[in-house]
Design a protein around this nucleic acid. Sequence first.
DNA 1: CATTCTAAG
DNA 2: CTTAAAATG
Lengths: 265, 265
Amino acid sequence: MLTVTTVNVNGLRAASKKGFVPWLAETAADVICLQEVRAELDQLPVEVRAPEGWFATYAPAAAKGRAGVALLTRREPDAVRVGFGSAEFDTSGRYVEADLPGVTVASLYLPSGEVGTDRQDEKERFMAEFLPYLVELKGKAAADGREVVVCGDWNIAHQEVDLKNWKANQKKAGFLPEERAWLTRVLDEAGYRDVVRTLHPDVAGPYSWWSYRGKAFDNDAGWRIDYHMATPTLASRALKAYVERAESYDRRWSDHAPVTVTYEQ
Amino acid sequence: MLTVTTVNVNGLRAASKKGFVPWLAETAADVICLQEVRAELDQLPVEVRAPEGWFATYAPAAAKGRAGVALLTRREPDAVRVGFGSAEFDTSGRYVEADLPGVTVASLYLPSGEVGTDRQDEKERFMAEFLPYLVELKGKAAADGREVVVCGDWNIAHQEVDLKNWKANQKKAGFLPEERAWLTRVLDEAGYRDVVRTLHPDVAGPYSWWSYRGKAFDNDAGWRIDYHMATPTLASRALKAYVERAESYDRRWSDHAPVTVTYEQ
DNA sequence: CATTCTAAG
DNA sequence: CTTAAAATG
């Protein structure tokens, strides 16, 4: 059994003050993929920089206070790689992967974007570069007889069922036709499986992100943008999935909820 | 009797959340000179933007969130003037004056500065422009048979007795020889009186500012940089002076304390 | 609406 | 150490 959690922490320093530390102490996960750490190593409290019982692999962004991904693993990885061979993005704190026995686990933080801005152009460049890498990653892993799961904040809701207000968001970044089509290519061309959707084909959501603005959380006006994208064999071994939505607005320590999948080994 | 208070609020929005509002409700002052308001009018809660029983004259800086002075008067001023005829400083939220019967009261926020920076150059330019204005102001007032008091944060401690650690601060902005000499000229050349010092010639302080850094407040490592500079006749009418140091670190609503003087009329 | 950085103090 | 803005999400 391998339990993998992914969660965008929206600033690990802030999250650590609001409940991330006890959450970490109680989780049953074997691997945790973090996004939006937004800190240098030495800015983090020691309980999260080097948590007891975990191996921590941090990939901060070159720009202070931005992005940043990490992997927490209960056992030491056989290998760790930061970035995916992109001159533009490898120092931007958006991708890290680790080899564990039989499986490569990655933490991805895809750029956010907003229509008509440079950020959206950046998001599109990332998508264009990252899709071929997914294909390559899957090929290398297959040659090695290993499975792959790329977890993280993909910043795109795939289908209408993946966000509460899909009608109002058809021209919004995160639910644009071209972004949705790109996610379809991740599945159909690169050959990954959306593990949570595969386990729960017909439910709305389960959402994993609610804006801090307005009453989005209380109205459950959420988006499903945090995914486990796994190679088919690993996906077929998924036993259960769970989105850990906080009980109330003020018990949250991030605007995202942890998304956990348990895989049979 | 005319009671005048001056206080640098270090952000009136923050101060309003921490105790400025009840302080204002209970003060016996007739005129309050505020510095470092750091807000536009419409960013302020209505209880301070238009407090009941007061006339409020705000002179915000053109730069958002910076400087800003104001006058609160229990009666409506006969006239109000923003700035002192300086192309550089009249829109910088550093000076406002109001005519009340027999007396002109001004709120001044002299630039802060730091040795070796552009800010210090700015402070020096302000000083160079402001001294002649003080002379002019006094002359016009005399011709009109009125007194003058320029209250505010002058950002200079005059003598060794005006700050706790004068030895360690001899090369620090706020206690440089040239700044101290300039304050002497305000007294000797422009002919103003330092009202609080005149009433209390021999005491240490009373300090009106304690840095937020370190334990400055608890150690009373303060500076006397907030002054009532009055024309001699008005100064001679000062009956008592009072610096309202907070009872404890966390009952403060600013790093400065209100400095209040009661004048006989 | 929240996090972090920066400039300023 | 604190305020407030700005950029980002």
